[in-house]
Design a protein around this nucleic acid. Structure first.
Length: 419
DNA sequence: CTCGGCATCCTAT
DNA sequence: CTAACGATAGGATGCCGAG
């Protein structure tokens, strides 16, 4: 059975949403001038998160440091991110998409796949339907999307990435040689910098050359799994279903790039305490426990290391997690200054019930009660409202950053925002 | 040989 | 001149040691 999949992608989402808000208020349209959503150019952590098309013409790229973007375009208008605005718009555009099919997969805050297979009776002309969705979003919500139409997710995603903005593109099997094969290999979904470099070094420069390259050679170059995937994708093959069910998180993590390098165990531990506080609370909110704790750290040369430990039993207690993290960093840090520190909780348990032992550890129970009390306060007042004494200074900064970035790829995680 | 544990790398938004 | 640069998540891979 032939499938039919749409990929709907908001054009320069964060910038479009900010621009639409301003236009509704009678202010100038950011989309028509060189503008970006980004961090503070004075700080080393400030990067470009989204850019207007005029900004792109100055060579500004997503992910580059703000300081460099300003150098490329001195008059650049820069706006700080506003996540509650993004969540509102994300919900609104997904609600429209959802009207057309029972099967929608939220791929990120600004992208969805919808499965339009077997709907010939309701929507006899899929291209017309795609235009309808696109135009409704533009007219009702004030921002534009691209729609890609294909027989599978990868091709639909590739198609939505063709000419922008406000366009509908198809990528059916017979169109693949003409529309996709001339593109550079690096444009293929999941062909990142590393894979692209290896392929180009072997003279496989375009998606078409990859599609027609010897599979065993490709596997040798970039590994068996990645090789098989990319070779399939280049040939338009992808069986991954559109699934509406969101998988439960397989891990929870927080990492922070600091303004002032961390040069003492004391400073590092304060950060870890603040991160344990935030990350364990998120985990508890989803009734999860972890069996593995890991710390990640990066020095001034950008060398990143990590150290992890598997626990004998799973936990959701902040103090336990912090204690493990503290030990991990103490035994792996060589004393050099750090620009980044992170804490990750993995190996997630969702038993749903407490393992009751006959001997109840009194201290543990007390800590759990404290955690629960703090959690309920957070739910009501937001993450910044309560902090354990002693982590006040660091924790505030962590949380501001954390909240700012929290929802980029996880739009279900907004319940701590501005309650 | 296989598997778990660990560190690192790669890719995505 | 180059490299510079976030937060979060998931998956892959290579190595090592145990069974």
């Amino acid at each position: 059975m032939d499938r039919l999949v749409f990929h709907i992608d908001v054009n320069s989402a964060f910038l479009s949403w900010e621009a639409a808000k301003r236009v509704a208020n009678g202010e100038p349209d950011l989309r028509l001038i060189p503008s970006v959503i980004g961090g503070d150019p004075q700080k080393r952590t400030g990067i470009v998160v989204a850019k207007s098309i005029p900004a792109k013409k100055y060579g500004i790229t997503t992910g580059e440091p703000m300081s460099m973007a300003v150098r490329k375009c001195p008059g650049l208008v820069s706006v700080a991110p506003d996540f509650s605005l993004y969540i509102k718009n994300s919900r609104a555009f997904k609600a429209i998409c959802k009207e057309y099919t029972p099967t929608m997969e939220s791929f990120s805050i600004d992208e969805v796949f919808i499965d339009m297979s077997g709907m010939k009776n309701i929507y006899p002309d899929p291209i017309k339907t795609a235009y309808e969705i696109k135009d409704r979003i533009r007219d009702e919500l004030g921002f534009t999307v691209n729609v890609g139409i294909a027989r599978n997710k990868v091709c639909a995603k590739m198609a939505s990435d063709f000419e922008k903005p406000d366009k509908v593109h198809t990528l059916f099997p017979e169109e693949i040689p003409e529309k996709m094969w001339p593109l550079p290999v690096g444009d293929l979904f999941t062909c990142g910098k590393s894979s692209a470099n290896k392929l180009v070094a072997a003279n496989i420069k375009t998606i078409g050359e990859l599609a027609n390259a010897d599979l065993s050679l490709v596997k040798m170059l970039i590994g068996d799994k990645q090789g098989q995937h990319l070779h399939d994708y280049a040939n338009g093959i992808d069986d991954d279903p559109v699934t509406e069910i969101r998988e439960e998180a397989k891990g929870y993590s927080a990492e922070t790039t600091v303004e002032d390098d961390l040069d003492s165990l004391d400073k590092i531990n304060k950060m870890l305490m603040a991160q344990a506080d935030v990350v364990a609370a998120r985990m508890r909110r989803e009734d999860a426990k972890c069996r593995c704790v890991s710390v990640t750290f990066r020095n001034l040369d950008f060398v990143t290391r990590s150290h992890q430990k598997k626990l004998s039993e799973s936990t959701d207690v902040t103090e336990v997690i912090y204690d493990v993290a503290r030990k991990l960093i103490a035994e792996s840090w060589n004393g050099e200054p750090l620009r980044l520190i992170g804490l990750a909780l993995t190996d997630i348990d969702r038993e749903g019930f407490e393992q009751m032992s006959f001997i109840v550890d009194d201290r543990k129970e007390k800590m759990k009660k404290l955690d629960n009390a703090l959690d309920s306060l957070r739910v009501r007042f937001g993450d910044d409202s309560v902090k354990r004494a002693g982590t006040m200074d660091v924790a505030k900064r962590v949380n501001r950053k954390h909240r700012a970035e929290n929802n980029v790829t996880d739009d279900d995680n907004e319940n701590n925002d501005n309650c």
